[in-house]
Design a binder for these strands. Structure first.
Lengths: 205, 205
DNA sequence: TTAAAACTGTACCTGAGGTACAGTAGAACA
DNA sequence: TGTTCTACTGTACCTCAGGTACAGTTTTAA
């Protein structure tokens, strides 16, 4: 194991453990002691990797968005193979996303972006901007295909394509909250399916 | 001023101040000192009204759900006057809700239910159950009317009426998160309008 | 074998959350 | 008018979390 790998695995372990605790206790509700106990590391070790909690927050958001984008790209890559039709690509993506959630062993862990939004004053401008840029990336993923779809299909609503693109994020965030409250992934799966149904009804041949 | 009124106004002031700070800093991120400074009260005064932070949390959720239900009932009462058609009642409600959000001076303050969901381990079973019951009340508000609507209209999707009822909560919670990230109520208004559009397209005469 | 990276261990400071309780202002009631 | 209770204020104190600092130890690459 190289030095880099050793470092990365410890750093990654800290981030992974921190994220899972934070999603259930909030950022302020999670102590560094909580994190180091579960990551099997000492306080000194923690501060070797991160200058403090603020730096951890930034690293967590960066890591979360990277992981998320990787998954989204994979799902869209698979769906893009199936069809050239932009609407079918989106619907394929949503079906794959729903299946992925259905196959989770436990309730969806939650979204760091949403969690941090309800504690936004704890973070500096930089982290808040990272979050905003992250959501804009999700928007773009859908907006591009929805705009192409609106050329081939007749759109049955006046609401902007941008808002319809954001509706994915909205349904997922809303669905996650419902799933956490009801302690079942069904709610999230259903909200994603409902977004799919909306697109099916709003774009007619 | 009666004794009761004096008490109630102080207690109410504490709750109101606490809610607004908590929605921006999280529950754990909000200190009792933060609350008492902004509520112009001493620590002793705070502990006269609440036995501690846990009791405050419970009171906050109870108060939030009561206020929320009062607003929802008012909006539905107004819409129920306009029409006997259950679908039109819901659409009237959504339009009024959207207008209410549009008329807010500042960005929507956020939803305590969503905020607490991302810090759920900080609260005991009782508070978590209060939150769950609150969401079930919102579900019922829509489900009753949607079921009646499904008798008069042809429903264009297989997804359950319950999930369509929960979609209101989902769109609002998702819309609030988007609005907070983009620092504009437009996103929330649009997501509510999109739910309206979904219902319009899903229920055909 | 050496030097740097990746830690451990300890000690210490500040401030938040919370407890306890004695004292006091003001309304209500007799 | 004085009494009494509610609704506080003020103070003092305890514990633990967040964070700092840094010296010492192990691990790894060259």
């Amino acid at each position: 194991m190289s030095v880099t790998a050793r470092t990365e695995s410890t750093r990654e372990r800290i981030l992974s453990v921190a994220e899972s605790i934070i999603l259930n206790n909030g950022f302020s509700g999670t102590s560094i002691d909580d994190i180091i106990k579960n990551a099997a590391i000492t306080k000194g070790g923690f501060f070797y990797h991160f200058n403090g909690k603020k730096e951890l927050a930034k690293a967590l958001v960066e890591r979360y968005l990277e992981q998320d984008n990787r998954i989204f790209e994979e799902l869209f890559f698979a769906s893009d193979q199936d069809s050239d039709d932009p609407l079918k690509q989106i619907i394929g993506f949503l079906d794959r996303f729903a299946t992925m959630v259905e196959n989770l062993d436990e309730t969806h862990p939650g979204c760091l972006v949403a969690g941090f939004t309800y504690e936004s004053q704890q973070f500096d401008e930089e982290v808040q901007d990272l979050i905003k840029q992250g959501v804009l990336v999700w928007r773009k993923l859908f907006q591009l295909r929805l705009e192409r779809a609106s050329e081939q299909y007749s759109l049955q609503t006046d609401i902007s394509i941008t808002a319809i693109a954001d509706m994915f994020t909205s349904c997922v965030e809303g669905g996650i909250i419902l799933s956490r409250i009801f302690k079942s992934n069904d709610a999230l799966v259903q909200q994603v399916q409902l977004y799919r149904e909306f697109l099916r009804l709003a774009f007619v041949a």
